[in-house]
């Protein structure tokens, strides 16, 4: 008994103990959450829905109305949100674009201010004002099953690459606006961006690009994200500018350095 305790106390001071405990704690919290969360999901009742809308309205009044107006009717500095739909709210708020950090050229992606539940409430509230694009459900987003990488690439190059670059790395627009990178964006948000046309982006309706085609685009983006760096360091995948920079600095730099060394007098 004594021995066992001694052995245990020895382990207590082992350097792996803290990380292991941390992982265990996180796992248990995560499991608890997912179990608890699973219980609340499922089809919601009308009463729950109106509670959600009411909650969304309260969040809206606190966090959004100073720019978008008390009834989301818009103002000089922000557009009306009547009819933009739940998809738009989900895209803008869940990717952290709204609320904006400052009144710069365009809202940028950042850590979201509201949690999932709050975003859901906000979306429900804005959707209750007037019909608009809905948040695509999980069953609609099965791009692995319904998309084709090659077709997606072709569609991406035809419709998206002119702003988002051939590899989805993003690019510059006029007056400081820009098309952000599409790498690391969740399929749901990519889909929502296509149907709502946030900021400078046009709307790609289901007539222009069908839902299956949208899934193909998502599948191609995910493939591009996962593509290994064939041929060595990718240099940002932004084209010949970085290549030229490297040729002049590293390439010519090394060669001129060697030339200096070769021409040095032996001492």
């Amino acid at each position: 008994m004594e021995d066992n305790l001694k052995r245990l106390s020895r382990f207590r001071r082992h350097r792996a103990v803290a990380p292991v405990l941390l992982v265990l704690a996180l796992l248990s919290i995560g499991t608890t959450f997912s179990v608890a969360g699973a219980a609340t999901s499922g089809p919601i009742t009308a009463a729950e829905r109106s509670a959600l809308i009411e909650e969304g309205k309260q969040i809206f009044l606190k966090g959004c109305s100073s720019c978008h107006g008390l009834n989301a009717e818009g103002a000089a500095i922000a557009p009306s949100l009547i009819g933009v739909g739940a998809a738009s709210v989900d895209f803008q708020v869940a990717t952290g674009r709204m609320p904006m950090a400052d009144m710069s050229q365009q809202a940028m992606r950042k850590a979201p201010l509201y949690n999932e539940r709050e975003v859901e409430a906000l979306a429900a509230y804005v959707a209750s004002l007037a019909p608009g694009p809905e948040i695509p459900g999980e069953e609609l987003l099965n791009y692995e099953r319904d998309g084709s990488v090659a077709e997606g690439g072709e569609l991406f190059r035809t419709n998206c690459a002119m702003c988002h670059n051939y590899a989805g790395q993003g690019g510059a627009l006029t007056r400081g606006k820009y098309a952000p990178t599409v790498m690391g964006v969740t399929p749901r948000h990519i889909y929502e961006a296509m149907i709502t046309g946030p900021q400078s982006m046009p709307v790609f309706s289901d007539k222009t690009i069908t839902p299956e085609e949208k899934l193909s685009i998502i599948k191609w983006i995910k493939a591009a994200e996962a593509e290994p760096q064939l041929g060595g360091a990718a240099l940002g995948r932004v084209g010949p500018v970085t290549e030229g920079l490297l040729a002049w600095t590293l390439g010519l730099g090394l060669l001129v350095g060697v030339a200096v060394w070769l021409a040095m007098k032996a001492r």
Binding site: R157, T158, A161, A233
Partner: peptide, 28 residues
């Protein structure tokens, strides 16, 4: 050539006059 990718043509896709990409640049 061994460590740094240059002109990754497979990412650009085939040329069709209907397409253009952001960051279309010539060599330096």
């Amino acid at each position: 050539g061994a460590v740094a990718s240059i002109n990754p043509v497979w990412l650009f896709g085939p040329y069709t006059p209907a397409q253009v990409t952001a960051g279309s640049q010539p060599d330096w």
